[in-house]
Deep mutational scan, measured.
Amino acid sequence: IINNLKLIREKKKISQSELAALLEVSRQTINGIEKNKYNPSLQLALKIAYYLNTPLEDIFQW
């Protein structure tokens, strides 16, 4: 999986903590996703895309 979450999140000036709060997950979860240590569920990936107002395929590429 190619993961552009960190790049997109930083472009939008959103911290890991802010995104985690919006998604109701821990900051460690966001960190793990960004470091490719954790693959989000489809539901979480869709929520990330929604809150970042970015197409899912721009954030994650399988």
Rank of each mutant, 00 (worst) to 15 (best):
I1E: 07
I2Y: 10
I2N: 12
N3R: 03
L5P: 01
L7A: 15
L7V: 15
I8L: 07
I8H: 07
I8T: 06
I8R: 03
I8D: 00
E10K: 11
E10G: 06
E10A: 08
E10P: 02
K11R: 14
K11G: 13
K13Q: 13
K13N: 14
K13F: 09
I14Y: 07
S15V: 04
Q16F: 02
Q16K: 07
Q16V: 12
S17T: 10
S17W: 11
S17H: 13
E18F: 07
E18S: 10
L19Y: 01
L19A: 01
L19P: 00
A21Y: 10
L22T: 06
L22V: 11
L23K: 00
L23H: 00
E24I: 06
E24N: 14
V25K: 02
V25I: 12
V25E: 05
V25P: 01
S26C: 05
S26Q: 06
S26M: 04
R27D: 10
R27L: 15
R27P: 15
R27F: 10
R27H: 10
R27V: 15
Q28H: 14
T29W: 10
I30A: 01
I30V: 11
I30E: 03
I30H: 00
I30N: 00
N31E: 15
N31H: 13
G32M: 15
G32F: 13
I33F: 05
I33Q: 00
E34Y: 02
E34H: 02
E34F: 02
K35D: 13
K35A: 15
N36I: 04
K37W: 15
K37L: 15
K37R: 13
K37P: 03
Y38A: 08
N39G: 11
N39Y: 15
N39T: 15
P40D: 14
P40T: 05
P40I: 10
S41L: 03
L42K: 07
L42D: 05
L42I: 11
L42Q: 06
Q43T: 12
Q43W: 12
Q43N: 11
L44A: 03
L44I: 08
A45Y: 03
L46T: 09
L46I: 13
K47F: 04
K47D: 06
K47R: 10
I48Q: 00
I48L: 08
I48N: 00
I48P: 00
I48K: 00
A49L: 02
Y50G: 06
Y50I: 07
Y50W: 09
L52G: 02
N53R: 09
T54K: 04
P55V: 05
P55E: 06
P55C: 07
L56W: 05
L56G: 02
L56Q: 02
L56T: 04
E57C: 11
E57Q: 10
E57W: 09
D58S: 08
D58F: 09
I59W: 02
F60P: 02
F60A: 00
Q61H: 13
Q61I: 12
Q61F: 12
W62Y: 09
